[in-house]
Amino acid sequence: MRLKPKSALPGFHLALGYTLIYLSLIVLIPLAGVFLKTAELGWQEIIDILRSERVLSALSLSFGTALIAAALNAFFGTLVAWVFVRYDFPGKRLFDAMIDLPFALPTAVAGIALTALYAGNGWVGQWLEPLGIKIAFTPVGIIIALLFIGLPFVVRTVEPVMRDLEKELEEAAASLGASRWQTIRLVLLPSLLPSLLTGFALAFARGVGEYGSVIFIAGNLPYVSEIAPLLIVIRLEEFDYAGATTVAAAMLVLAFVMLLVINGLQAWSNRHKVRHQALAQPIQAGGAL
């Protein structure tokens, strides 16, 4: 079997070999280790661990908050990208640089800063608490931390695609009688959807695994605000390695399934893109124009 058509540009075998070895060492082998360690337990024990209330609530908290935060980021991140692409305002470059800060900042710093802000006696928290709104040490606090962490993923994936959108598309839609809202909904959003889904997936994946910033603001109450990664650490500290890897394996499978679904959505939203087959057989109808 040939893996690829004959090409004038060499390097395929070398590149593929290198990629496979690299992926194995860095990704596949460590992940396989998680499953091997988990397999030391019998099926019954694994199911018992996964069905325990503390594990279930930690998993649903982690995935739930990550989903909500990624969804909010998808919306607001797109808005931020829009403003950066379409408008000029004083300090734009400074704001533009600040978007990337969550990438660079140690997440614990973000966690401490957010906690100080949103705690009952913090700058923001002291105004919210009399209204009965508690943010720090609740799942809402976790979502706030994940919003902070995930924002640049959406902005930076949507921005370049948005920049490439021709202004003429909007002009064409308007000349055909479309309102501004119809233009956004029917013309702009569908064009942005693939990149928006990528940004969403990245923000979500990052949110599920986030540890540093969350543990400061979450309060870490079992059953209420204890995230799955923290539970894994707790199990490790109890020398319950198999228990820890069981939770880890569950997260791995869940995350993988969700990314697979998002990938499927992306393929669907990209369905209009040219496939190589379509290119290979140009369509000729109504003359050779």
Partner: peptide, 15 residues
């Protein structure tokens, strides 16, 4: 959008 003009662009601007 209310002028009822048909506008055709050099680079088509198809959706």
């Amino acid at each position: 959008r209310k002028r009822q003009i048909g506008f055709v662009f050099q680079h088509y601007a198809l959706f």
